[in-house]
Each structure stands twice: as C-alpha cells, then as structure tokens.
C-alpha cells in the first residue's frame, strides 16, 4: 500500500482568506471573458451548430457492401458473440453465390441496448461492420424505431466517405466499376 502524505499547508494557506481571494481572482477572469469576449466561449449551440465529429468516434453502425451491393457480412455471428450488451441479432440463410456459404437475412442492432463499445467492429473477420457514420443522435418516436435493421445499416452513400477506399467499392462509389469487374472476373 502506498501512503500519500499531504503537504502541510503553509500559514498563508491556512488563513484561508488569501487563497479565497486567489480563487475569486480566477473566477473573475473567467467571468470577464464571458462578458467581454462572449464570442470566445467554447460552447456550440447544439441543434443549430453541430460539433466536429472525428473519424474514430464510435457512432451508429453500418454494414459494408460488396461491389454488387450485397452486404459483406457472412453471418458468422462473431459480432453477436462479442457484444457485451447482447444487442445484435443475426439470422443467416444460404447464399446464392457459390463462393459464399452464408448470407445474412436479418441483422438487427438495438441501439437502446447498445453500449457503443466497438467490440463488434473488432470481432468482425471480414471488416463488414463499422461504426464510422458519425451519426451520434438517436431520436425516434417509439422503441421499435431504435432497432436498426439490415436496410438501415446498408443504406449509406459512398459519397459520405470519400477518403475510405473500402467504401468506394460499394455501388455508387468511384471504384465500384473496377471492383465489380474484378469481382465478376473471379466468379467466371
């Protein structure tokens, strides 16, 4: 056990009044800044002005897409197993594509239960699940709407992720045509 001894207070500190005056000076400086330099306050008035969200922020999930527009998810269930909040529900079905064994039929994420830990993203073996949508506001009329279904998760626009190569592969992206060709080539 480590014992931390507090430094004994000096006389000036024990008298309290001088330290109190020092504290008053600090708050006065801040108050003067608010009054005379109101525009320098760091507050963002929220619904009107949006804060800058960084790429690494763990926001709402999305499912990555193959060049042909099907979700990349192979329905392995790793994310559901990794999820500490048990908020991911996956139903698999046989895939039409002979190269792929399973495809996902139902992929629900309950955002009321989700703790946004990001473990599902780490667990995904095929990089199908990401949390980089920067959507951090969840507001709906009823509880059911908070559950994101497969359609919500795959319904994103590659134009919103211009720097991400993997996103550009999806239909509508800049590299989609090329990727589609490669994808088709491997099939035949």
């Amino acid at each position: 056990m480590r014992v931390i001894r507090q430094k004994p207070m000096t006389l000036g500190e024990r008298l309290y009044i001088f330290e109190a005056l020092r504290g008053l000076w600090t708050t006065l400086k801040h108050a003067a800044r608010g009054l005379f330099r109101y525009e320098t306050l760091p507050t963002i008035s929220y619904p009107e002005g949006k804060p800058e969200v960084r790429n690494t922020y763990r926001a709402k999930h999305r499912l990555m897409l193959r060049p042909d527009g099907t979700p990349r998810c192979v329905a392995c269930g790793m994310c559901a197993a990794a999820c500490p909040a048990h908020c991911i529900f996956i139903e698999a079905t046989a895939s039409d594509d002979p190269r792929i064994e399973k495809r996902v039929m139902r992929f629900d994420i309950d955002h009321l239960t989700c703790v946004f830990c990001g473990l599902c993203v780490e667990a995904c073996p095929v990089d199908a699940l990401r949390m980089d949508t920067k959507e951090m506001v969840f507001e709906h009329r009823n509880r059911d709407d908070f559950v994101a279904h497969l359609y919500d998760l795959t319904n994103w626009d590659p134009k919103d992720y211009p720097d991400d190569e993997q996103s550009q592969v999806a239909p509508g992206g800049t590299k989609n045509a090329e990727a589609l060709r490669v994808w088709g080539m491997e099939v035949k």
Partner: peptide, 15 residues
C-alpha cells in the same frame, strides 16, 4: 445565472 455560466466558461441560459 449568466454570471455563473461565464465563470464556468458556459454561456448560461439563453435559449
């Protein structure tokens, strides 16, 4: 209210 806000680098109630 505004004074308290300013001292804490907030804006205080203004909505």
């Amino acid at each position: 209210r505004r004074g308290a806000g300013f001292m804490q680098d907030r804006q205080g109630p203004n909505r």
